[in-house]
Design a protein around this nucleic acid. Structure first.
Lengths: 186, 186
DNA sequence: TGTACATCAGTGAACGCGCGTTCACTGATGTAC
DNA sequence: TGTACATCAGTGAACGCGCGTTCACTGATGTAC
């Protein structure tokens, strides 16, 4: 209940962005209120506007942060097949807050304001570039295959989450996409 | 402002479901209020609960209706490559209200109630079955490829919409996925 | 076939609630001298 | 180095608003006789 050091304020701001990056992926932008978010980050809601101009402005930053944490996660995979297995795993399906922003937020981003879409596109471009680098084969057409592979990865994870947990299709979407990409697009 | 014939009431109810099938795909479930929906269908909001138990209950029906209209659209294509071109077209990207429910709603469905997820999964199964039938090749592995192809189709359309309209990536996602599916998965 | 009455689809005002945002206030931090 | 004052991150009450849902009311439809 007092002024805080500049370093602390900066850290608090970052904490809110990080918290939002997780919560938004888990429940969507509209599924998380400003009050709920600030409470999850350890603050009261009033201070929100000291750091961000609006909830929308935070959303754009949070999308960037979500992509950054996902890029760090990707760096942990030894090669592309291993990345693919982790991306399309049952664990990833059940932990949206810690996995791909595209699979969690693409639908809402499509109807969102421009800054959010720009932040989203930047992260997606980076993911495509990394997948392309991990793909084998000759240079001509490699970018094209990488774009299609990313589409399949994002689509499969998203659809798997939309289907009831116990539906065979939930697991099949992940496995069929993993196997098909490995056997025909590597 | 009076009682209406049973046939008329039935038609009015269907009109609301059809209107919802379009509006929900365009703006998402949360982006359309009950009042707005009823007005778009030509009624006042109060009558909504004569037909539906809740907004959620309507959502499940609307998802079914959206899949049904999309199945009718699919039937118009002569073969699978033609269907693929129509599905991943610029026109489809710009007309979510008239195109694939999966690409428009998967994200929200993933966080939605069970009946909505079940209706979603039913329509998705039908789409996969149709794509499998349209795919060439031997029976072993054909289902698997169909599941991966549907994932890529839905993912590409969704991602294309999430990216800014003028970004090259918006068109590239559609084209790269069209071409890659045709050249390696048919 | 005609009459009397119950039904119920549609209307529009009203409800309680949670949302994003604003604001007066606080007191330790950061700065000027 | 010490003192006086301005700054501003965080607090919590309050705002206006739109939401999903409820309800008393209406009058033509459908039914019983």
């Amino acid at each position: 209940v007092a002024k805080i050091s500049r370093a602390q304020a900066e850290a608090n701001r970052a904490k809110v962005v990080e918290t939002a990056a997780g919560l938004f992926r888990e429940r969507g932008f509209e599924g998380v209120s400003v009050g709920e978010l600030m409470a999850a980050a350890g603050f009261t809601h009033g201070g929100f506007y000291n750091h961000f101009g609006s909830k929308e402005a935070l959303a754009a930053e949070a999308v960037g942060a979500a992509w950054a944490s996902m890029a760090a996660e990707r760096a942990r995979a030894a090669d592309f097949p291993q990345l693919l297995d982790a991306y399309l795993s049952r664990a990833a399906r059940g932990a949206p807050a810690k996995s791909c922003p595209a699979a969690a937020l693409a639908g809402e981003v499509a109807r969102g304001p421009e800054p959010v879409r720009v932040a989203f596109a930047d992260g997606l471009e980076a993911m495509i570039a990394e997948v392309e680098a991990g793909l084998g084969g000759e240079s001509p057409g490699r970018r094209e295959r990488a774009v299609a592979v990313v589409s399949a990865m994002v689509g499969a994870l998203m659809l798997s989450r939309a289907v009831p947990d116990e539906a065979p299709l939930a697991a099949e979407l992940l496995q069929a996409t993993r196997r098909t990409v490995k056997s025909t697009l590597l």
